[in-house]
Design a protein around this nucleic acid. Structure first.
Length: 967
RNA sequence: GGGCGUUUAGCUCAGUGGCCAGAGCGCUGGUCUUACACACCAGAAGUCGCAGGUUCGAAUCCUGCAACGCCCACCA
């Protein structure tokens, strides 16, 4: 039956069809099956802050490659999809949008309403994200889609918190945190970035009590003076030694504070050698206060204004207070000097406002044991990183074992399941003593009970105990840390958990090795007693054209759907995999595609982050809105898509594969499957099977070691440069001959089928298209014995051939033929011989090579357009010929009247020059006695042979030049 | 300041000790040769960041330097 394909692969026409087909057939659904080995990946759940960009596209493509490959290898492969509620990030995005559109803050809306709005946002973006993943062809089991705030995850979070609480690993403490005055929340160290800003460096003096002396100190934040509780000097500093133990007065608040000695805090060589100590607002001062038992005075309200501790400055914004403090100190004559200074100031990654170190009540998880076990898991080799070097990032971070601040002053997230109660121990025992789902502990600093429960409903049973729930929510990473087991229904011991956990591999990028990977290991071990995954594959990051990481918050993301629309999904996927090399991040310069005329306008830096609202196309002069992650449509201006020429690599390759299939299908009218005996196959078939076997082995090995981009290269080269450029070209002759046709058809189909399978994990859509076309034209196929093909390539077995198919001799002979053909073509090109005109060739070569070439002579004729061919040691040299010398042959192309003597002389001297240069370097090496003695004998022999070859070739070239010069 | 990484053709990147250092794009010349112009054929193009060292032999290993990127820490 004749199946005809379009001249060009049209991805848009088939992608929806195959996606629907796969889902309808349930190929990606997986359920526990003890008879088959499991392969399982849980998706790094994308944040619901916005749509996915190319960074996500590469992450998910790589996962899909692995899942599809393992599925074909016969594993019961499961990929669990889902999304992350992303506490701070999502709340910030929605708050910002509400403020922009309605001018309202979260305090205007109230907790309930804000949370309702965020859920609506989440629904919208979750749908968009899952849609994007489907478009990408991700072979997830969609039935299992989870969200970190859904009931199953919430239950896991609740149980985990409870278990940690019971184990005494969670505690409440006053800690200095990074306070974001805009969002009014603590942010993690990891959520802080540093930026240099212009500031000042003031030097003030405090009067020493009961003396005329003053002590001078410098600061960049004068307002923190209001919270000073000491002045520190170095114990050995002669300038101040006599003052240690005395007191100074803070003039503006009329408070006396001690002068203390602290060798850790103070470097006598810096500044005045004296340091004001503000424990509640500086990390180092805080540590110092702990050492000396100093009081800690918090002078800030959550919104960044000064609180009652600031006396007459209370109510002022901290910057206003700073101005006034400086003014007032100056008025008192206590300001010595002001310098300009660049200050490297911490900023909140979310709100971009400066961070205030701030003493507040927070919840912490004790890291010591958890971190040690997580380190052990990697150090003992239970978890392996690919590439290996990233294990170090992980270990270095865990080694610090810093307690994890898990509370966030937000409304979007898992509420901390702790209630405060002021009551008697006896009351609690009476009420809850019998219940294993409630635990409590006494908190001395706040003089109250902390009650943790697995379920909110316990509050009803406690009518005589006044309970107040903690208003905070948990750090997003708390729920993400449970991801690999919570998706399987933990804490229940589900069949899923038993079968799929530990998962096989985690695929992610290096920037969340600490935030996420380490925490998953800790919590997986704590909750399940087992590591969450065996391998961690850290992959390339996609940078924008300016070298910056793509991120939702930077606004430099490129929507994969833009790329898909222009180039197709397989093009996107293949190109991304091709770029995912081991060491380099990949730069992705992009262009706006003019919505009016499709002209490409390169993206510039000022277009990023939605800063430019309008561009005029230099080609058609019409305006459009630049491409980017806009939250809404623009009613007036059409928005450009973003494109990058890089994806042409993938698009062209998909089309190449498509056309190889198209060619085959045009030649399969009378296809009949036949069993084959490998040993009797002609040389060209054994060659392609040898090369194919090699390609399969390489690909499998590269995928096994997470070298996906190398696998892409191997497949690209084999498909394009060997199968298409040589094997198909040779097959054209065989297909014309009824004698050889059947065999050629069988091998062509078998090799194409194997290629389609190998490429399927990378390019699922085009390969399924070809697979289905082959199903009609050649339902029985394969070597050595044709078999009925499975109904879809998604479930086809991964190809494999016996090692006996490898044949180095045959590969060398084909190589020889290819070299000869290329030499002929080169001469034809140099002499501008018309493509339709045949040439006669004379090839002087040893008997063995002559025999090999004779066997392939019809192909040489076809590929190099030759007529008469002579091979052998004694073939004559035509009178007027162009010459090429090779280490296994001398080629003469008879040019007769076409000969252009000066041109040929030029060619020959060029060859001569190249060979002479090479010979020179070979001789230099051989004349070095150390080389001859110390290098391995086979290397020396190799160079000796090369020297001989070159000498012969040069002799020949000189003779030819001499002869030609006389004509 | 510590760590990791990068520096190879105009661009984007492969290449972990030994045949003339490769690919894609771009460039030059020639082809619409009935699978593919998203293609085919041929070609030009690189003192492999710099300086030392190890080695018979270095893009590849070591040391130092420079530039760039990321992570961590710190900056009264």
């Amino acid at each position: 039956m004749r199946v005809e394909l379009a001249r060009q692969y049209q991805p848009a026409e088939v992608e929806n069809k195959w996606r629907a087909y796969w889902e309808e057939k349930g190929f990606f659904q997986s359920d526990p099956d003890p008879r088959r080995p499991a392969f399982c990946i849980v998706i790094p759940p994308p944040n619901v802050t916005g749509a996915l960009h190319l960074g996500h596209a590469i992450n998910n493509t790589l996962q899909d490659v692995l899942v599809r490959w393992k599925r074909m290898q016969g594993y019961n492969a499961l990929w669990v999809p889902g999304t992350d509620h992303a506490g701070i990030a999502t709340q910030a995005v929605v708050e910002r949008l509400i403020y922009q559109q309605e001018g309202k803050t979260r305090h205007d809306l109230g907790r309930e309403e804000l949370v309702r709005r965020i859920w609506a946002w989440k629904d919208k973006y979750e749908a968009r994200i899952l849609g994007q993943l489907r478009q990408l062809g991700c072979s997830c089991d969609w039935r299992r889609t989870r969200f970190t705030l859904d009931p199953i995850c919430s239950r896991a979070v609740r149980h985990t918190f409870f278990r940690l609480f019971q184990a005494g690993l969670i505690y409440r403490g006053k800690r200095l945190v990074n306070w974001d005055t805009t969002l009014q929340t603590a942010v993690a160290d990891d959520e802080v970035f540093h930026e240099t800003v212009k500031g000042h460096f003031w030097t003030f003096r405090y009067p020493v009590v009961g003396s005329d002396e003053h002590i001078a100190f410098s600061t960049t934040r004068p307002e923190t003076m209001l919270g000073d509780t000491a002045v520190a000097v170095h114990p050995d500093d002669p300038r101040y030694r006599h003052l240690i133990g005395r007191r100074v007065r803070i003039p503006l608040v009329e408070r006396d504070i001690p002068i203390i000695a602290d060798a850790i805090l103070v470097d006598p060589a810096l500044g005045t050698g004296a340091v004001k100590v503000t424990p509640a607002h500086d990390p180092n001062d805080y540590q110092c206060a702990l050492r000396h038992g100093l009081p800690m005075i918090n002078i800030l309200n959550p919104d960044g204004t000064i609180n009652a501790h600031g006396g007459r400055y209370a109510g002022l914004d901290r910057y206003e207070a700073r101005r006034r403090v400086v003014e007032d100190m100056a008025a008192l004559g206590l300001l010595d000097r002001v310098e300009d200074r660049d200050i490297d100031l911490a900023h909140s990654d979310r709100s971009k406002t400066p961070i205030e170190p701030y003493l507040s009540d927070q919840w912490f998880v004790r890291m010591a044991d958890l971190a040690q076990k997580a380190m052990d898991a990697v150090e003992q080799g239970h978890i392996r990183f690919y590439p290996e070097r990233y294990a170090r990032t992980y270990l270095d971070w865990l080694r610090e074992k810093r307690d994890w601040c898990i509370s966030r002053q937000l409304w979007w997230g898992h509420r901390i399941p702790v209630w405060y109660a002021r009551t008697e121990a006896e009351t609690l025992r009476r009420r809850f003593g019998q219940r294993s789902d409630i635990a409590w502990t006494y908190d001395e600093t706040s003089d109250q009970w902390l009650i943790c429960s697995l379920d909110d409903s316990f509050t009803a049973a406690a009518e005589d105990v006044p309970l107040v729930q903690d208003p905070d929510v948990l750090d997003t990473w708390f729920s993400s840390a449970l991801w690999p087991h919570e998706v399987f229904g933990w804490p229940d011991r589900t069949a899923d958990l038993g079968y799929y956990y530990p998962t096989s591999v985690l695929v992610t990028s290096r920037d969340i090795i600490t935030l996420w990977v380490a925490r998953m290991v800790m919590m997986g071990l704590f909750n399940c007693g087992q590591i969450p995954f065996r391998h961690v594959y850290i992959h390339t990051k996609i940078l924008d054209g300016f070298g910056e990481t793509m991120s939702k918050s930077k606004g430099n993301g490129v929507d994969p759907l833009d790329i898909i629309e222009i180039y197709g999904t397989d093009a996107l996927r293949f190109t991304l995999v091709h770029m995912a090399t081991e060491t380099q991040d990949a730069r992705m310069p992009v262009s706006h595609v003019c919505p009016h005329c499709s002209h490409l306008v390169p993206q510039k830096q000022e277009h990023l982050n939605m800063r430019t609202r309008r561009i005029v196309c230099p080609h058609c002069k019409q305006p459009f809105r630049p491409g980017g992650p806009w939250p809404e449509e623009d009613p007036e201006l059409p928005t450009a898509r973003l494109a990058s020429e890089k994806f042409e690599l993938g698009r062209n390759f998909a089309n190449k594969l498509w056309n190889a299939a198209r060619f085959l299908l045009l030649n399969l009218d009378d296809y009949a499957p036949v069993p084959l005996d490998h040993s009797t196959l002609p040389v060209e078939d054994r060659w392609i099977l040898s090369r194919l076997t090699y390609a399969i082995d390489q690909t499998t090995h590269l995928l096994d070691t997470y070298q996906l981009s190398e696998a892409a290269r191997v497949l690209y080269d084999f498909t394009w440069s060997e199968f298409c450029d040589w094997y198909i070209e040779m097959a054209k002759a065989r297909l014309r001959d009824p004698q050889s046709k059947v065999l050629a058809q069988n091998i062509l189909v078998a090799v194409l089928e194997a290629i389609v399978k190998l490429l399927h994990p990378l390019m699922p859509f085009v390969t399924e298209s070809i697979w289905q076309a082959l199903a009609q034209a050649a339902p029985q196929r394969g070597v050595p014995k044709p078999r009925s093909a499975p109904e879809s390539v998604t479930i086809a077995p991964w190809p494999s051939f016996p090692q006996s198919y490898r044949d180095p001799t045959i590969e060398a002979n084909i190589q020889l033929m290819q070299d000869l053909v290329r030499s002929i073509r080169s001469i034809r090109n140099d002499f501008r011989i018309d493509d339709r005109q045949s040439v006669d060739i004379y090839v002087r070569t040893d008997n063995e090579s002559a025999q090999s070439l004779e066997a392939l002579s019809s192909y040489i004729g076809l590929l190099a357009k030759t007529a008469k061919q002579s091979f052998g040691p004694q073939v004559p040299r035509p009178r007027q010929a162009a010459t090429a010398v090779h280490n296994r042959f001398e080629l003469y192309v008879d040019l007769a009247d076409l000969i252009d003597i000066p041109a040929e002389l030029k060619r020959l001297s060029k060859q001569k020059l190249e060979k002479e240069k090479l010979l020179q370097s070979v001789r230099a090496r051989l004349s070095n006695p150390d080389f001859v003695h110390k290098a391995p004998p086979d290397v020396v022999t190799q160079f000796r042979n090369q020297e001989k070859d070159l000498e012969q070739q040069l002799e020949l070239l000189r003779a030819n030049i001499a002869q030609l010069s006389q004509m």
